[in-house]
């Protein structure tokens, strides 16, 4: 029964794929776009000529401040918003929209995190419910990683690690919700850079706590004990760069590829697969990798 259903869905996808290929080859012009919907009370299915230009679209999506500076108009959706007016006073007109959008998305992510925390805390029962089992499994898995990498007495790092994972995961997932103005906060370089910097600060604070300030500093300032100390300092900076640009590059690359490729194939079927790959698969793997790297950086420093 289930197998039969799977097959039929696959057939529908294949038919759409072939139709799409035919339409793309027939039109052979990247400025045309398929339009499906209602117009004047009639169902419309046709190929319309649009005059948008991909370059302007990329600028609008990824450098929104630059876009509004170039066109010189005010963004319509935010015009009457009190919070937006407030932001304009603080940051100036040039960078108000980008900052407003980013901070709004971050607040939404924080709200989701708090909601999860309250719901889980309120609903702890003897016989656990389904979400509780899910989160206990997640927490247990990460606790095992922490104990394995650090040691039994450093179990208290688990909440930090799990929070980092859930935060980055929700950040990567939230861009898939089709609401105008929604975007992944990790697409903006400032968010991964902040997270990476915080992770490296945690590494050094832990190292100072275990080894003592002087012994830890000797690695970086004493040329007798460590002849390559300059390289180590550059290495610490490159840790921040690599951990944050890895997240940023993957998410930004996915977003740009989704935008360009789906506008090339007229938004038929392809965006679903692209979102599955870049949104769910890459997003989850990058969140996991970021967390694991932060954990193992701590693990390398505290070895006795």
């Amino acid at each position: 029964m289930v197998k039969k259903k799977k097959g039929s869905i696959l057939k529908v996808f294949l038919i759409f794929f072939v139709l799409e290929l035919i339409i793309v080859f027939l039109s052979s012009d990247f400025n045309k776009q398929l339009q499906i919907g209602f117009q004047d009370g009639k169902f419309v299915f046709r190929n319309v000529q649009t005059t948008y230009d991909l370059q302007e679209k990329i600028t609008e999506e990824f450098q929104i401040d630059e876009h509004y500076k170039r066109t010189g108009e005010e963004p319509k959706i935010y015009q009457s918003n009190k919070l937006y007016e407030f932001f304009k006073k603080i940051f100036g007109k040039a960078s108000a929209i980008g900052t407003f959008q980013l901070l709004r998305m971050l607040l939404i992510v924080d709200f989701v995190l708090l909601l999860i925390a309250f719901l889980i805390k309120k609903r702890i029962f003897e016989r656990p419910s389904k979400p509780q089992i899910m989160f206990e499994l997640l927490y247990g898995a990460f606790e095992e990683f922490v104990v394995e990498t650090l040691s039994e007495k450093r179990r208290h790092f688990t909440p930090y690690i799990v929070t980092l994972f859930i935060f980055i995961w929700i950040c990567n997932m939230i861009g898939m919700i089709p609401i105008p103005g929604f975007m992944e906060p990790t697409r903006n370089l400032n968010v991964p850079l902040g997270l990476g910097f915080a992770a490296v600060v945690v590494v050094h604070v832990t190292a100072i706590k275990t080894k003592g300030l002087w012994r830890h500093l000797q690695n970086y300032i004493n040329p007798v004990k460590n002849p390559l100390f300059l390289l180590d300092i550059v290495g610490e900076i490159s840790k921040v760069v690599s951990i944050s640009f890895r997240l940023f590059g993957n998410i930004l690359g996915g977003a740009i590829i989704i935008l360009v490729v789906s506008s090339l194939v007229k938004y038929v079927v392809f965006p679903v697969g692209l979102n599955l790959f870049f949104g769910i698969f890459v997003g989850t793997i990058q969140a996991f990798v970021f967390t694991m790297l932060a954990l193992t950086y701590i693990g390398v420093e505290v070895v006795e």
Binding site: G235, S238, T296, V300, V303
Partner: peptide
């Protein structure tokens, strides 16, 4: 955990020419 740590340290050293 020992192998993972060795792997990371080894990779950090091999990365130095990249840095």
């Amino acid at each position: 955990s020992l192998i993972t740590r060795t792997m990371l340290v080894g990779q950090a050293v091999s990365e130095s020419t990249g840095i």
